[in-house]
Nucleic acid binder design. Structure first.
Lengths: 352, 352
DNA sequence: ATAGGTATCGAAATCGATTGCATAAATTTA
DNA sequence: TAAATTTATGCAATCGATTTCGATACCTAT
């Protein structure tokens, strides 16, 4: 199979008897080229099958019209939605999107930041790995004026754009909701406490208990490593076997919350009557499990959109110093069956 | 904030009194550079904070060590896993990954292929949009010798690498499973028939019925547009209201299958006794819904890995003509509760 | 000592697009 | 009509890495 040669602006120039400069300017709608010429050149470009070479343009301009993403797991629903939001926004603006996943490993995060840097991305959007503590690998972007947007899992010791939800309030509201449903011994599935999101959710939980005069029992606060289904299962089993088991669980994610529901059912503990459960994220499984899971909804796609916008706006306005705009988005408590002890479920109790 | 200047191989050259050629070769472990020199140069590179410029290298080599992905929706579990597999494989080989989603629009697919082409990707991995019929927008890759791997949703009129599962056999086996469970009137949730995957699943379904001497009833075959939850709900309602309703459903995806289960429960039809259900994909919701959903599992991550490998291998071996290796992967029927009419469920029937 | 080999390294062209500066032509102004 | 603008376009350098030819120095064998 023969490989066709590339059509470049030089080919266009030769063909149309213009200089490459004019071709380039015409294709970019430069104002110093007459409309007639622009039209002529653009039509010829299409006809000859010309396609711009981003590598060449990027080299020359020292930017690649590409947004880099660094997240931990693409197939987590939240992160997939995040990426989706970024991609849509970026593409509309003519930007490409490079992705990389750390699998929650610090080491991967470092090599991925390097790989993205080497591609001279316009900006970077990051949700930190579970392990990351040191932030040194991000400095090179700052030094070169490449904007970084931290999203969801953000550092607290690094000055940059941030897009987050109000995890404290969400944790507070979720816990308060359980309290209002009559729970008095509420357990908490906590995530790694060096990650802001889990730390703040826990703080919200604690403050809600305090506010309502409920005792804080360390035994009811389980610290998870990954908030996986298996971990949730084990924790729930342990909790329900306690002499004085909890009557509510606020889980820092839906996966563990769902495992709690399923575990409780298996152990003959009825949800929500004996155990009310509320999760976090509003993953698809939340509305499928029975009883359906109350949870905190996370505007993932929107967070992606906003993060991408930050990068795009930055590169236009070229801020020089105020590299620290923080966007805090609200969350919503989605009340489903798993936490609804007081008001009867709307539909009649058939088939359950 | 000041922007630091880029460290280039020229800076290294000046600093170390070598020519840029030598620096370049040393960094690439070229054999004509002594090990001592290589070590010296590499150490200096690290110390001076040198980072290669992929744009420059890519321009010179006319390749960017980047794999482009074109799928329809990032947040579909299957596609997210696919991307994940591609990303992992690519990154291990030192490649970056550009993503784009068509949202199942032909128009987006075209503009995205252009955007990816303009970035001079090394290869392209595609799962076709629902609308795509004409394949003209892929020709430019072939012309330039850029390999394309079609995965899952593949064309049948275009010569290129393909990575698929055996949809026909999967459809056949799923249907056969329902028949073996005693179903005699099996409905089928079919997807758009111009997409290979849905067409073949349906063919397998039809052949299974024929083989077991069951009549084919057009009324039991519902053609979906998107196989969404809502569509599934509506279809199930319609089916169950028939004078002679089906006793089994083979759905082309899990979303619609789950909606069928939930709809049946709401209508007082017990699953699997009165209605056995089997889905396709093994999405997370499949194991969460109650009764849990039997389904066909799809090696999504592996398909991603293989697709990426195809690109990588191609660019090494530089095949010239045999651009049509097809990989067919097997699937697995996952039997859960929703289809198990004969054998009793293993766990005792508590709490259900 | 000389031819041939090998190990190391350099000069300079190249990839394709962009852009500051210069120029030529067309138009307006004085 | 000459001068001053404005409009439209070209020249040539530039971005950073790679690679084709060679060139040089050092060895080895005859």
């Amino acid at each position: 199979m023969k490989i066709k040669k590339e059509v470049t602006i030089y080919d266009l120039a030769k063909e149309l008897n213009y200089s490459p400069s004019t071709i380039s300017r015409a294709l970019n709608n430069h104002k110093s080229i007459s409309k007639k010429t622009i039209k002529l050149i653009k039509e010829a470009a299409v006809e000859m099958g010309y396609r711009p070479n981003n590598l060449a343009a990027g080299l020359r301009n020292n930017r690649s019209n590409t947004i880099g993403i660094l997240i931990s797991h693409i197939s987590r629903p939240f992160q997939a939605s995040l990426i989706s939001g970024i991609e849509e926004t970026a593409r509309k603006a003519g930007y490409n999107v490079l992705i990389s996943q750390s699998n929650d490993k610090y080491e991967n995060e470092i090599s991925n930041t390097n790989a993205l840097y080497d591609s001279r991305i316009t900006g970077l959007i990051v949700s930190l790995s579970m392990e990351t503590v040191d932030m040194g690998h991000f400095q090179k972007f700052i030094d070169k004026g490449i904007p970084i947007v931290f999203v969801d899992r953000v550092p607290d010791n690094f000055n940059s754009y941030k897009v987050v939800i109000d995890n404290y309030t969400a944790g507070y509201s979720a816990t308060k909701h359980l309290i209002e449903q009559g729970c008095t011994r509420i357990a908490h599935f906590a995530g790694a406490q060096h990650r802001n999101i889990y730390e703040e959710r826990k703080k919200g939980y604690l403050d809600a208990l305090r506010e309502y005069g409920l005792p804080i029992e360390e035994d009811l606060i389980i610290h998870f490593k990954t908030l996986s289904f298996e971990e949730g299962n084990k924790a729930t089993k342990k909790l329900l076997k306690m002499p004085n088991p909890p009557d509510g669980i606020f889980s820092s994610n839906d996966t563990a919350a769902v495992s709690a529901i399923m575990c409780a059912k298996k152990m003959g503990v009825s949800v929500p009557q004996d155990l009310a459960v509320i999760g976090f994220n509003d993953d698809p499984i939340a509305s499928i499990v029975q009883p359906s899971l109350s949870t905190v909804s996370h505007p993932a796609n929107k967070m992606g959109t906003i993060s991408a916008r930050r990068i795009l706006d930055h590169s236009v306005q070229n801020y020089d110093n105020d590299l620290s705009e923080i966007t805090v988005l609200g969350t919503e408590i989605i009340v489903r069956e798993s936490s609804l002890k007081k008001t009867p479920v709307l539909e009649p109790k058939q088939s359950r």
